[in-house]
Amino acid sequence: MGDQEAVTGTSRVKRGMADMLKGGVIMDVVNVEQAKIAEDAGAVAVMALERVPADIRAQGGVARMSDPDMIDAIMNAVSVPVMAKARIGHFAEAQILQSLGVDYIDESEVLTPADYANHIDKQLFTVPFVCGATNLGEALRRLNEGAAMIRSKGEAGTGDVSNAVTHIRRIRGDIARLTSLSPDELYVAAKELQASYDLVAEVARLGRLPVVLFTAGGIATPADAAMMMQLGADGVFVGSGIFKSGDPVQRAQAIVQATMNFDNPDVVAKVSRGLGEAMVGINVADIPVAHRLEDRGW
C-alpha cells in the first residue's frame, strides 16, 4: 500500500477535469430553464452567469460575479459540471465561488476587471480555473498563476468569429515557432513571451500547451464550431450564440453535433439546416477599441 493520503486540488486533478470536457460544448446559461436546455442538448458543462456577454455589451455598467442563489439553483438543476465567472483579479469572488462548490471558475474578461495589474493567484485554490488568452505568452502567464485550462478569447457577445480565429491561430502559431527553436534560443523566447522559461521549454518539447485549449468569443453557428475545432481547439464555449438565437434548443443541439463531428462536413451540413435566426451579431471592427474585451487581461 502506498503511504500517501488522498490529496485534493493537485495540478493533475485540476487539469484532468478539463480533459474530461474535451470534444464538448460549454454553454452560457442565465437561469435553470436554460441550464436544462443546455444539458438536454448535450452540453458538457454550463457556465452560470447573470447576463450573457451580448447583454452585458448592450446594457453596459459593471459586470460582476453572479448571485450565489442563482448559481446554487443551477448546480441543483443539472448533473453536468457547473462553471461560474469571477472578475479578473477578484480573488474574493473566486473564494465565494469555491465555497459554493462550482466545478470550475472562469477568470473572465467578459466581466469588468477588478484589478488592472494582477490576476488571481490561482495556485491558492482547490477549485480549478480557466482563463482567456489571445497569444501564447498570455496563456503561459495564466498557467504560471495556476490556471488549469485555457480558452482563446475571441470577442465575446458579438457572434463574430473572426477574433476567435485570430487568437487560436496566433496561439498555435506561437507554439509551432517554439518547436522550431534550438534549446539555446528558448531563453530569449521566454523573455519575448514574458513567460517562465520552464513553461516555454515544456511547450517547445510537447508541441502543445500542457493543458486543454478551448475556444470562445463569437461562436454562433455549427460551422463556426467545426472551423474552430479544425483549427485545433479541444472544445468550444458558446456564450450569447445559443440563447440569443431564434431557436435555442435546435441550435444548442446542432452546435454540439458539429463540435463532435467537426471533421465530417456531411453531419455539419445536416445539423445546419432549419436553425432559424442566428444571433444578430456585431462586427468586431465596428466596436470602439475601448469597448473590446480581448484587451482585458495582461
Binding site: Q4, V7, T8, T10
Partner: peptide, 15 residues
C-alpha cells in the same frame, strides 16, 4: 459523483 464535486476530486496511491 460519489465523492462530491470537483473540489473533492483527489489523487491517491492505490493497491
Amino acid at each position: 459523483n460519489a465523492f462530491g464535486r470537483q473540489v473533492d476530486s483527489f489523487e491517491i496511491d492505490l493497491d
